[in-house]
């Protein structure tokens, strides 16, 4: 099951050139671009691990592609995303976020039904991947 979070996630995987163009758009807008990775694909897992500092003063997106490739060397089998942070007053938030690397095998999510008082059923989703301990997921 292909994980669909952030932008462009219903499109085919982005090539390095695509990443460069998108990151350059963010840089030209004055947003700080950074690279993050995780092995917990739950949609509510907002804060991924940072790969280096956010790039506040790099005028060219080649640096972003370089860092993405460095991150792939260390965490090639996990999810890697590029985010762009807008620091202008009133925003101070993420403006762009897209996945640039995903595991070869994405097992997807299962639904867990919890029987509560009376006839209430509570639903939750859980990735099959997180059954393994952190660091041992996605082989």
């Amino acid at each position: 099951m292909k994980l669909t979070q952030g932008q462009f996630s219903f499109l085919p995987d982005l090539s390095d050139d695509d990443i460069r163009v998108q990151a350059q758009y963010a840089i030209d807008k004055g947003w700080a671009v950074s690279v993050e990775w995780t092995d917990d694909p739950h949609p509510r897992n907002t804060y991924w691990e940072m790969w280096g500092h956010p790039m506040f003063d790099n005028p060219d997106a080649a640096a972003v592609v370089y860092e993405v490739n460095e991150c792939r060397k260390a965490h090639g089998g996990k999810y890697i995303r590029v985010i762009a942070f807008d620091s202008t007053p009133g925003w101070e938030s993420i403006r762009m976020s897209f996945i640039v690397n995903r595991p070869a095998e994405e097992p997807g999510f299962r639904v867990v039904r919890q029987e509560a008082e009376g006839r209430v059923i509570r639903y939750t989703i859980e990735s099959y991947a997180v059954r393994q301990p952190e660091g041992a997921r996605y082989a």
Binding site: G52, M55, D57, N58, P59, D60, A61, A62, A63, Y66, E67
Partner: peptide, 14 residues
């Protein structure tokens, strides 16, 4: 290494 890479990244495209 991080310091050198930082300088190199800043210079990329130039």
């Amino acid at each position: 290494a991080p310091k050198t890479k930082e300088a190199l990244k800043k210079a990329m495209g130039g």
